[in-house]
């Protein structure tokens, strides 16, 4: 009997050593593991993004302003709405600059969606603004455009696949929960889309570029540190 217990103990030790070995894996291996599955996970994510496939709105009762935490990587920029200009450029036929007055002339769209943070929390929010696809239609991206780059007033950067950017529910929002967008949530204009994780939804957006290639080191602030680029949900 004691013999049996000893063997049992040895087997259990063997199992826990698997965990120990994995736990002490170097950061390098972790990065390689991520690179291994990223193409597959991206294809899976892209497969799910369809322009005609709309995400149903949540009910207005589900809106929970307290659940929406504020995550900002650096400072909160104060932008005077009167001086604000949104630059839209890149490989487009008609690059342009819009002030808030002209931006708000584009058709208004509203969604009630779940904002999902990579950290694991989520909050139901109503966003109102213009569709990014309407802006794209205005500047006419050239045929080989595949990505959209975003620059923010706080120097935050991000990049999206074109299909997700021109999805009909991807908004440039200037309204939140029926009120003008607060500064800490990205005023005057921020990205809001139900199909991407929170770190893709840049606040204080000042420049949008339609491009055929993402410049080296330009995937985005968090993506360059190791977070997944596609981040579709």
């Amino acid at each position: 009997m004691s013999n049996l217990n000893r063997r049992q103990a040895i087997q259990l030790l063997g199992m826990s050593s698997i965990g120990y070995l994995l736990g002490s894996c170097s950061n390098d291996l972790t990065t390689q593991v991520g690179n291994l599955s990223e193409p597959l996970n991206q294809s899976f994510g892209e497969l799910l993004v369809r322009p005609q496939h709309l995400i149903p709105n949540f009910s207005a009762r589900a809106i929970n302003p307290k659940a929406l935490l504020i995550n900002t990587y650096d400072l909160t920029p104060e932008i005077n709405p009167i001086n604000y200009k949104l630059v839209v450029d890149g490989e487009v036929k008609f690059p342009t600059e819009l002030n808030l007055f002209n931006l708000k002339k584009l058709p208004f769209a509203s969604i009630i969606m779940q904002h999902v943070c990579v950290e694991g929390w989520a909050a139901v929010v109503q966003w109102g603004g213009i569709r990014l696809r309407d802006l794209a239609q205005m500047v006419q991206p050239k045929d080989d455009v595949r990505y959209v780059l975003f620059e923010s007033a706080d120097k935050y950067t991000d990049s999206w696949d074109l299909a997700s950017a021109i999805h009909p529910q991807t908004l440039l929002a200037y309204q939140m929960n029926g009120q003008p967008l607060p500064i800490k949530n990205g005023a005057p204009v921020r990205l809001a889309a139900p199909i991407k994780l929170g770190y893709k939804q840049s606040k204080w957006v000042t420049k949008i570029s339609f491009v055929s290639q993402i410049p080296k080191g330009g995937k985005g602030y968090w993506e360059e540190q190791g977070y997944e680029w596609f981040a579709g949900i």
Binding site: C25, N27, T30, T31, G34, E119, G226, E228
Partner: peptide, 18 residues
């Protein structure tokens, strides 16, 4: 920390989603 894998959130996600 000994019960977790991947050093940080993005690393944990790498392992989980692979």
């Amino acid at each position: 920390k000994w019960a977790t894998l991947g050093d940080w959130l993005a690393g944990g996600r790498n392992w989980h989603f692979t």
